[in-house]
Amino acid sequence: TFEVERIVRKKIVHGNTSYLVKWKNYSSKDNTWETEDDIRTKYGDLVDDFEK
């Protein structure tokens, strides 16, 4: 199971928000862009903290 360590960046393309996710126990080269809906479902607190 993958676990988010932190959110690195945010991008908005054509009105759709995605977050660059750093995965726990993986290197930064393994970071992936994930949709806001996918990340918010399980890691809403991390998204809220990133947006502060």
Rank of each mutant, 00 (worst) to 15 (best):
T1L: 12
T1G: 14
T1N: 13
T1E: 13
F2Y: 13
F2T: 12
F2D: 11
F2R: 15
E3Y: 04
E3R: 04
E3K: 03
E3L: 06
V4Y: 02
V4L: 09
V4C: 07
V4W: 02
V4Q: 03
V4M: 07
V4G: 03
E5W: 04
E5N: 00
E5Q: 04
E5S: 03
R6V: 11
R6E: 09
R6F: 14
I7Y: 00
I7R: 00
I7T: 02
V8Y: 04
V8A: 02
V8H: 02
R9L: 10
R9W: 09
R9G: 15
R9H: 08
R9V: 06
R9P: 00
R9Y: 07
K10R: 07
K10C: 09
K10E: 00
K10V: 07
K11D: 04
K11A: 10
K11Y: 05
K11V: 07
K11N: 04
K11C: 15
K11F: 04
K11R: 13
V13H: 11
V13K: 08
V13W: 08
V13I: 11
V13E: 12
H14D: 15
H14F: 10
H14Y: 09
H14A: 13
H14Q: 12
H14T: 07
G15F: 03
G15Q: 04
N16L: 14
N16Q: 15
N16G: 08
N16W: 08
N16R: 13
T17E: 03
T17R: 04
T17M: 05
T17Q: 03
T17C: 05
T17I: 13
S18N: 06
S18C: 15
S18T: 11
S18R: 10
S18W: 15
S18A: 08
S18F: 15
S18Q: 14
Y19L: 01
Y19G: 00
L20I: 00
L20R: 03
L20W: 08
V21M: 02
V21G: 00
K22N: 02
K22R: 05
K22I: 05
W23I: 02
W23H: 03
W23F: 04
W23Y: 09
W23D: 02
W23A: 01
W23S: 00
W23N: 01
K24E: 04
K24P: 04
K24D: 04
K24H: 07
N25F: 09
N25P: 06
N25C: 09
N25W: 08
N25Y: 10
Y26C: 15
S27E: 13
S27V: 07
S27I: 08
S27G: 11
S28E: 15
S28K: 09
K29A: 13
K29V: 10
K29P: 06
D30F: 15
D30T: 07
D30Y: 15
N31A: 10
N31L: 14
T32P: 00
T32K: 03
T32F: 01
W33K: 00
W33E: 00
E34V: 15
E34P: 01
E34C: 15
E34A: 07
E34H: 10
E34Q: 09
T35P: 12
T35I: 07
T35Q: 09
T35N: 11
T35Y: 09
T35D: 11
T35M: 10
T35F: 09
E36W: 06
E36G: 08
E36M: 06
E36Y: 08
D37I: 10
D37V: 11
D37H: 13
D38M: 13
D38A: 13
D38W: 15
D38R: 11
I39N: 02
I39E: 01
I39L: 15
I39C: 07
R40Y: 06
R40K: 10
R40P: 01
R40Q: 04
T41L: 14
K42H: 09
K42A: 12
K42C: 14
Y43M: 04
Y43F: 11
G44L: 09
G44W: 12
D45C: 07
D45Q: 12
D45H: 14
V47E: 01
V47M: 08
V47D: 00
D48R: 11
D48V: 07
D48A: 11
D49I: 13
D49G: 06
D49C: 09
D49Y: 11
D49N: 10
F50L: 03
F50N: 02
F50K: 03
F50P: 02
F50V: 02
E51F: 05
E51V: 05
E51T: 05
K52P: 04
K52T: 09
K52Y: 07
K52V: 07
